[in-house]
Design a protein around this nucleic acid. Structure first.
Lengths: 218, 218
DNA sequence: GTTTAAAATTTGGCAGCTCTAACAATAGAC
DNA sequence: GTCTATTGTTAGAGCTGCCAAATTTTAAAC
């Protein structure tokens, strides 16, 4: 099928596209830590394979085929993360790197088995949706905690920017997915929130953090 | 560390060495399905890295360092096979190809976790010993079923040549590791055995098969 | 509209792993 | 001991994926 390398380009392109729709060679280069000329020639190669729409000096776009392929890789990644957390007992902050490797395995049976053992989960341990078997992703409409108002009670449903450090920080605060959070107050000057959840009352959440927490209103 | 490719050479070299002690470039070439000149130059490269003892026109040998590295890869392979069978529910005939891929993952934590979940197993699903964390393998002294005598009762402890087809054949006969087998008779002319095990009595086992079954005498 | 900084592209080169074709050494047959 | 088939080696080349340096295009500033 596609090389390990090609898969990484597709995935990066997919992730960047998700946010902005279009992607520049430069952005992709930075995302992958690969120099622009290399990225450029890979784009031509992927364009030959009908995975990417490439025109000189124009932004990059995935074709439908490219989106599907990328979706399937991300499916493998997220299924793996879920498996690592729920079947193997890893913490949600430990699984990214391992999944980064396992996502490239060529074994439909292996991922089928994971899926079955997990009961066909719809999201990964960070609340991100798992693409279906056709690579199609259904975006969930969560809201940023930072957009909520005092008095509202919400459920923590997903986190953005899943760096180890951020996840460890959430661990230390006892913030886990599914946690109900009541917003007591928002400071005018720095938009920090005072919230109550679980056994904690009047906990402070900075704006930097509340922007990275996605919630459902209850 | 070492490339995916180098690891495959080391592993093949280790497996071939186990049987014969020394390995020719030709044998290694056939084992890996890679042409001799390619194997030859890789041997020089691995010799530079002190993993292989290489002299022109002499048989190949792994250095101690090479044996250790190979042992660690085989450890990952066999732990994975055990995990796939006992934690994920795969059949022993399905796991080789998947393990072939997972053995190259770089994640000590992942294999540690497998090991722990499995209760630190000593053998893989085919009865082969799992090398320890130093890559050291303790060979088990089993005997070929074909070397046993009528009247003896033995326990099936490992299988040699673990091709899908052979394992499926054993499945179809209900022959699993741990099975107690009583030898009733051995035919002079073709060395086939008549044996009794489980609910089956007077089952016929050809010499080809009995040579591939390793047993412990009880 | 020029100028200029950033982004994109082209060119040429290198490393890893593979091959085929040609040549050399070894070991077994005689 | 010589011959010959097998095995091993060298030489030359291709492909992928990476880079640096040089060039071109675009877009933003003036």
């Amino acid at each position: 099928m596609h090389s390990f390398t090609e898969e990484n380009y597709l995935k990066a392109l997919f992730n960047l596209s998700a946010e902005k729709g279009q992607v520049s060679v430069n952005e992709l280069s930075k995302e992958l830590n690969i120099k622009m000329p290399t990225v450029n020639s890979m784009m031509k190669k992927l364009a030959d394979k009908k995975l990417v729409l490439y025109e000189s000096y124009k932004p990059l776009k995935l074709t439908e085929k490219g989106k599907k392929e990328a979706g399937l890789i991300i499916r493998k990644h997220r299924l793996t993360e879920m498996f690592l957390v729920h079947q193997m007992g890893f913490g949600w902050e430990e699984v990214h790197e391992i999944a980064e490797q396992i996502e490239h395995l060529q074994s439909p049976a292996f991922f089928e088995k994971m899926d079955a053992l997990l009961g066909y989960p719809k999201t990964d341990p960070h609340g991100s949706p798992i693409p279906d078997k056709l690579g199609k992703i259904s975006w969930l409409q969560y809201e940023k905690l930072s957009n909520c108002k005092p008095g509202e009670t919400v459920k923590l449903s997903a986190v953005i920017q899943t760096s180890d450090d951020f996840l460890k920080f959430l661990n230390s605060r006892g913030l886990i997915l599914g946690q109900k959070i009541k917003i007591k107050n928002i400071e005018k000057f720095d938009s920090s929130m005072t919230v109550t959840y679980g056994k904690k009352s009047d906990e402070m959440i900075s704006h930097t953090v509340s922007e990275r927490l996605l919630v459902e209103k209850l």
